[in-house]
Design a protein around this nucleic acid. Sequence first.
RNA 1: GAAGGCGUAGCUCAGCCGGUAGAGCAACGGACUUUUAAUCCGUAGGUCGCGGGUUCGAAUCCCGCCGCCUUCACCA
Length: 508
Amino acid sequence: MSEHPDTLEASRVDKLRRLEALGIDPWGGRFDGHWPIAEVLKLPADLPEADRPRVRIAGRIVSRRDGGRVHFLDLKDSSGEPTLRELKGEHEGTVERVPDLSSRIQVMVGQKQVGETGWAVAQLLDLGDILGVDGTFGRTRRGEPTVFADGLTILCKSLLPHPDKWGGMQDIEYRLRHRYLDLIYNPETLDRARKRVRIIRTMRRYLDDLGYLEVETPTLHAIAGGAAARPFVTHHNALDIRLYQRIALELHLKRLLVGGMEKVYEIGRVFRNEGISPRHNPEFTMMELYQAYGDYRTMMDLTEGLIVACVRSLGEGLKLPFGPRTIDFTPPWPRVAYADLFRQYVGVALDDAAAVRRAAEAAGMPAAGKHPDVLVHHLFEEKVEHHLEGPVFVYDYPASLCPLTKRKRDNPAIAERFELYVQGMELANAYTELNDPITQEETFRTQLAGLPEEESMARMDEDFLRALRHGMPPAGGLGIGVDRLVMLLTNTQTIRDVILFPLLRPEK
RNA sequence: GAAGGCGUAGCUCAGCCGGUAGAGCAACGGACUUUUAAUCCGUAGGUCGCGGGUUCGAAUCCCGCCGCCUUCACCA
């Protein structure tokens, strides 16, 4: 029991040993019958002392004020304030129990009230310890709702100091590397995590109610197709084959359409071996959905209903703040043709190859040797996207950008595809699925001829083509970037704050 | 991958036109039975991200490396 332990940790280990010397297990165990702090706070607090209700609570010590023979602790748990909320719109009449933020309550520990051992324990408590408390609920003289303890149970000793109760956690790297502390000390982190759960749950419920089947498809692919992205490469030892982490869900879900699953979806992780930015994490969550006998118009209606349901599930109305702006999700959302936007903001027609080339050169883009549609797309990203505050559906894309999409019957240069833009971000991507295996094979070949394999959206996939040859019903398909949706609905500017454990370089 | 910024005590931060490191909270010892940013007295805690250079002397100036942030590139 050194008087000046070398480190903060040593001081806590010292207390741990002293607890053990008292015959107390500092790591606790089963602790039944405790109340959520939020429920305790709802009890009548102003009863005469003799009539105070008995309570048992458990939580983490987040603040401490010692005063001689009486100590005050603040205990925090994850109970939040449960509220019942009636959902409107698509789920009219449904009542959902919505837990909000965590709750904290003050505990008074008096020497007389907790007894000799209890008082000895009280001297050995630190910020960050997890404590069980038995006592009665009332108010202090200052009117603070308080549990007056008569029994203390150590449930876990904390050996490392927690962040400052005032300064809190500011350092972004520290927060990301210690997300568990971030969750405790930055309420908005827990709030975002819970809103994410609620959004995804709403998505599932909405689609389940419409009869879509949720499926799981492989994440290890022999050929990483379905999107234009660089995959992570891995290796299967027993089979001695190269495998890729999936970059999209598309090709397996379409195989299920062939197999007669007429309405399917999957919510799952995809992996892309590309840069990291405030909008990109190497692994992220996609929702992809396919519906037989639908087309991209079907998907537009569905997308609007689905996202509006997600917005409503947060209970904050249809106008949500995002940075300095407000996003108004009130349907119906405008639908604008790609070509019209292009003409409006670039000033030329997208099928006028010479004009497009001049516009690209005027914008300082290297245009030599590039397919006109590639230039069109670059110009669109450069000149148009940032105008799309949205939500807005942009539809009918140049066909050569969309190798898995059915062309318009009356104009094979245009593909039946739309993207949903909100705040300049592509939030959803959908098309009328190409179910013609002959055209599909041609598209694969022409794409492959023009681009390095890793940049091609249409990696040749013979097995997928074989599935198409057996006959896939005409269908609409939709993909939504779940992380981005959560960003937009929770006013979060960086994807790292809607993913609990974003990728960081290892320390040291 | 490129450019710019940042990295000081457990946490939050000062110090940075070179003179050998500070505060608040946390911690340790003591006083206090109704505090709530408790207060008061006392104490301890830092290879100033890592390595090298310039200098009599470097947290401070220069170079390299590592990590984080921002912007750009790739992409959703």
